[in-house]
Amino acid sequence: MKPKTVNLTLDGALIEAEKGSTILQAARQFGIHIPTVCYLENLSPYGGCRVCVVEIGHNGGGKTFLDTSCTHEVREGIVVQTKSPRVIRARRMLAELLVASAPNVKIAQDIAARMGLLRVRFPMEDQRCILCGLCIRMCSEQMDGRALGFAGRGVTKRVSLPFETRPETCRLCRGCDYVCPGMVAPCPGIKEPGELCGRCTRLEEMPNCCPTGTFGCFCERNPL
């Protein structure tokens, strides 16, 4: 039996998407690229990085708002724009914030390059954890390790083991390392403070910068 579908407009095109799916899933199905940081297929969506925001409106006009495509379920009659000026502005600033706090995490540099960032106007830090929560969701949803969780809140939020000790339920499966974006160093290695990469956007440098020789930084995480 054919699953129930809804009709929506995605970047100007009228499409049919499966009811209960998210805008991100629908977009990927139709080949529209939306960058993500804290999303991984087969793990529940978190909606924490906000990079995948899209502009959502309604058929009859009226006000639009931004929401994360990874969590927003498709509804009949919505009008979605994945690259409107408002979205681009938001993503650029989010990229700037991300790369200012974690310049040595590859995905931060990737998003910055993708958004065409040329400079960072905030004092740079060097965090290695971007609080995407992928390790936590991997541990609890896929591996039943029940070992990782968030502790603290706000700027002092961190990923932690309960009482900073590894519980017995942790089987050292290394699933957390596998999904962690912070484990992937930027292509040419650790950066100088304030250094932005973006080499993959500069055609003349592209063939030389990526160690695997594939098409620039938009490889595994952000399929073209």
Partner: peptide
């Protein structure tokens, strides 16, 4: 309730 949850609550 999971100890991770409790620890998260106590530190939050």
């Amino acid at each position: 309730m999971g100890l991770s949850n409790i620890y998260g609550v106590v530190t939050f």
